Simulated assay, not measured.
Amino acid sequence: MDRHFTLLVGSVLGASEYVADAIAETLRARGYKATILTQPDIADIDEDSTWFICTSTHGAGELPDNIKPFAAQLEGEDLSDIEFFVVGLGDSSYDTYCYGAIAMETLLTKGGAKLMAEPLHIDVLHHPIPEDRAVEWLEPILDTLD
C-alpha cells in the first residue's frame, strides 16, 4: 500500500483541478499517498511515484499553459521507469476533443512510459460533474492494484 501517486494537472478554468482533487481523495481513502502538482516540474516528482496526468485542452487543441513547460521537459527523455494514467477533459463539440490528454499520452509513451489503464476522456457535455465520472472510472482500477 505504499504506492505513491503524483497528479500532474493541466488546467485553464479549474475543472481539471477538481478532478485531480477527487482522484487524490479516492486514492487517499484507499491508503495511498497522493500529491497534486498544479505547476508540474519533473524535479518535484517523487521518482517512485506513479504519474496521473489530469488535463484539459485549451484553444485549438493546445495543452493548458501551466503544463506546457512540463511537457517540454519530457521531450526526448527516457521515461521507461514511469507508470502513468491519463484523464482528459474536453467538449466533444470541438474537433480537438481531449487533444491535451492525447498529446501528453503520446509524449509519455514515446519516451517509453507504461500506460496502466485505458485513458479516460471525459466529455463535459455528457458529464457536467467530471470528477464523479473520474472516480467511477478509477474505483475498479484501484481494485486491481490492491
Results as ranks from 00 to 15, higher is better:
Arg3Lys: 07
His4Arg: 15
His4Ser: 15
His4Gln: 15
His4Met: 13
Leu7Trp: 08
Leu8His: 03
Val9Phe: 10
Val9Arg: 06
Leu13Met: 09
Ala15Val: 07
Ser16Lys: 04
Glu17Gln: 07
Glu17Tyr: 03
Tyr18His: 10
Tyr18Pro: 01
Ile23Pro: 05
Ile23Ala: 07
Ala24Leu: 01
Thr26Gly: 08
Ala29Ile: 07
Ala29Thr: 10
Arg30Met: 13
Gly31Glu: 14
Gly31Asp: 15
Tyr32His: 15
Thr35Leu: 04
Ile36Pro: 01
Leu37Phe: 02
Thr38Cys: 05
Pro40Thr: 13
Asp41Ser: 08
Ile42Tyr: 12
Ala43Ser: 12
Ala43Ile: 07
Ile45Val: 06
Ile45Pro: 02
Asp46Ala: 10
Glu47Ala: 00
Ser49Leu: 11
Trp51Thr: 09
Cys54Lys: 10
Thr57Ile: 04
His58Val: 11
Gly59Asp: 12
Glu62Tyr: 02
Leu63Tyr: 01
Asp65Trp: 11
Asn66Arg: 07
Leu74Asp: 06
Glu75Cys: 01
Gly76Thr: 07
Asp81Ser: 01
Asp81His: 04
Phe85His: 10
Phe85Leu: 14
Val86Tyr: 01
Val86Leu: 04
Val87Trp: 02
Gly90Val: 05
Asp91Cys: 03
Asp91Met: 05
Ser92His: 14
Ser92Leu: 14
Tyr94Glu: 00
Asp95His: 09
Asp95Gly: 09
Thr96Pro: 06
Tyr97Trp: 09
Cys98Leu: 10
Tyr99Leu: 10
Gly100Phe: 14
Ala101Leu: 13
Ile102Arg: 09
Ile102Cys: 06
Ala103Asn: 14
Glu105Asp: 08
Thr106Ser: 11
Leu107Gln: 13
Leu108Glu: 12
Gly111Ile: 12
Gly112Thr: 11
Met116Asp: 13
Leu120Met: 04
Val124Gln: 12
His126Glu: 15
His127Lys: 09
Arg133Gly: 00
Val135Arg: 08
Val135Gly: 07
Trp137Val: 00
Pro140Asp: 10
Thr144Lys: 12
Thr144Ala: 11
Leu145Trp: 05
